[in-house]
Write a protein that binds this DNA or RNA. Sequence first.
DNA 1: TGATGAACATACTACCGAGTATGTTGTCAA
DNA 2: TTGACAACATACTCGGTAGTATGTTCATCA
Lengths: 214, 214
Amino acid sequence: MSLGVREHVVDSSRADILRAAATCFMERGYASTSIDDVARSLGATKGRIYHHFPSKADLFAEVFRAGMDMNYQAVEPYRHLPGPALPRWRKMAMVHVLQMIDTKPFQRAVWIGVEMHLRGATTPAQREVFNELLEYRSTYGKLFRETLLQGREEGVFRFEDMSIANQLMFMTLNSPIFWYSPRVGETRSDIEVIARQVVDFAQGGLRGTQENPT
Amino acid sequence: MSLGVREHVVDSSRADILRAAATCFMERGYASTSIDDVARSLGATKGRIYHHFPSKADLFAEVFRAGMDMNYQAVEPYRHLPGPALPRWRKMAMVHVLQMIDTKPFQRAVWIGVEMHLRGATTPAQREVFNELLEYRSTYGKLFRETLLQGREEGVFRFEDMSIANQLMFMTLNSPIFWYSPRVGETRSDIEVIARQVVDFAQGGLRGTQENPT
DNA sequence: TGATGAACATACTACCGAGTATGTTGTCAA
DNA sequence: TTGACAACATACTCGGTAGTATGTTCATCA
């Protein structure tokens, strides 16, 4: 079952390509990123990319999947924390936001992928792959949805429309992929302060205006 | 000073092109939208586009400017409402969200434009135009910023970092450009219900968790 | 009424980028 | 040591697209 040195080298090369591709997609978007761009950022040529990935669309899909995997694995350990909804939601939200910051290029790619799918900018052949990935994303969304519902029952959340609340919450929690950029000399605790503010905003939003208390 | 029939026809043709272009940019993004796409959606050819706009980048810039103009003109009447910050902020926010819904194609173009600028995906020549447009956008942002500060002094808002709060607020208020789509048989009041939920979420977010009340 | 120019359409060029076909080099197994 | 294959690089093709150059039509005005 253990992988030989050769396999590790291959996987490492693949992973390097995925990282470079994620960064390129983040910086220029999908359409404006050429395979040559990705190769150049690796000091390589197209041959290397096409040796590991059959097409640009497949390369992008792998980046997308990698980003989703990171999220799922980060949040999954906390989804079944027992007890009231709020602390569990806060933990999950915090982990999610930190993921957005720590793996920004991949998360931007996920965003781009969702956008592309929503406007149907994929070939029928790529549709299948994408549908599977978005199913994956949908599953991830459900992790939060359950906790949102429990929180509403417990009175800590007061949103009206579940669908809208879900959109707004994820919009808030995902937003660092657009505006966060590391500062020089930034420590881990600085990042956590930022993430906490994002989570606080989302929590306040989910509670609403609270103009009719009791 | 009054325009003749000829000028009106010209302006109407230009406006048609801008609307079609905004829709195309929304549906496929900037890079994936060809001038032929825009022309085809008008039942015309490239010649018509290039007769009115010198380049694709200029066409896009005009769409961007039109979107910003709509926002500014919609919000400006309320920026100097006297009295406490909260009702003024709510009015401005509500108008802003309704603008996002009513002129979605243009607002998506504005978003795309900001993204493009942030990653520097513009030629030096287009930089000047873009810088002016983003200055415009910055001015628009200040309309809200003043009210945010007043609201914090009055205790209705409790955010820590002004920059982050501003980002999160606009992220929330802008978000309908991504997830709103008209429903069949939807009335104006249905739309206003949606917009109100968005504004409520943003207001709750700006107030924060409120775990240390007084 | 004919000349002029605006408002397009048509036909073309030049380039860029995805994908392919074909080398080249190093490694490992027999 | 050799041959076979993985992991690339190199050198192409080919379709699509921005931009241009050149018609064409119609209204307006001298």
